[in-house]
Amino acid sequence: MEEQDQELIERYFRNALSAAEQAELERRVASDAGFRLELEAQRKVRQAVRLREKKEVLERLAQRGRELDAREKQNGGKRRWWLAGGLILLLVLLAWWQWNGKPAATKQEPPPVLSGQDSTQRIPPPDTPRTTAPPDAPAVKKPENQLPVASRDTRERLFAAHFKPYKDESLEPSLRGDDPPPPPEKFRQLYWDGQYPEALSQFENLPAAARENDNELFIKAECLLATGRADEAARIFELILKNDRSRYTDAAAWHLALAYLKTGDMGRAKSRLQRISRSNASPWRADAAALLTSIQ
């Protein structure tokens, strides 16, 4: 094959032929078998070189494509996990709001059924009765430190499990024949018998000095707590503890914690229970610790 023919073929593949050269090429293809074979061989060479280059490039691109897909899948998987996590968190928050976030019902729940004849408590030391200011202390704050763990039902259940109106020998009324008992005696009798609403009514009949006595106030607070009026009971217990003149201060502290629990003031309840559980003198130390664990 002459060099001139090679150049013609090469220019043909580069689309660089003039009209005259194109005519010459077509003439040679039609008349010269050797030229035709060389043209075909050159075509195959170019196809072979191109195919090999294409194969290499496409293999490399395909490999890169697989890497990109894998990375995208991984990122997509992570995104899905984040979305799922966010959704779960949202559901948990909604559930928590459902249980604890709703405003408390204004209607008081009926008081739990309480047994009234249990007197296994420790006998407190002798009291020092004296008149005190009426229980017009600052109102118990609305629940502001509610802990998310204590739902209303849980609080009620814990309260019912731990609250028993305080009774000991000092509170047991003495029998005095057929004469009607004086108001203080009747008040204690009603309390002892578990007739808490009646006892509360009777409290109003007590002499003014008796109504300001911390021990009598303690019994009134117990009646209030037993009838579900925890807010009012808490105010009296706080006063008793502040005055620190009653023989029932330990019991008042314990029942104040329970009153906080019942009203949903979990922050104060927890704080009060911690103090009781750390106090060696309190007969309710173990109960407070147990309740604290239940709350937490």
Partner: peptide, 13 residues
């Protein structure tokens, strides 16, 4: 080129 021819050309390369 057809698949067979492609394979042949690639094998030659």
């Amino acid at each position: 080129p057809g698949a067979e021819e492609q394979a042949s050309l690639l094998a030659s390369m």
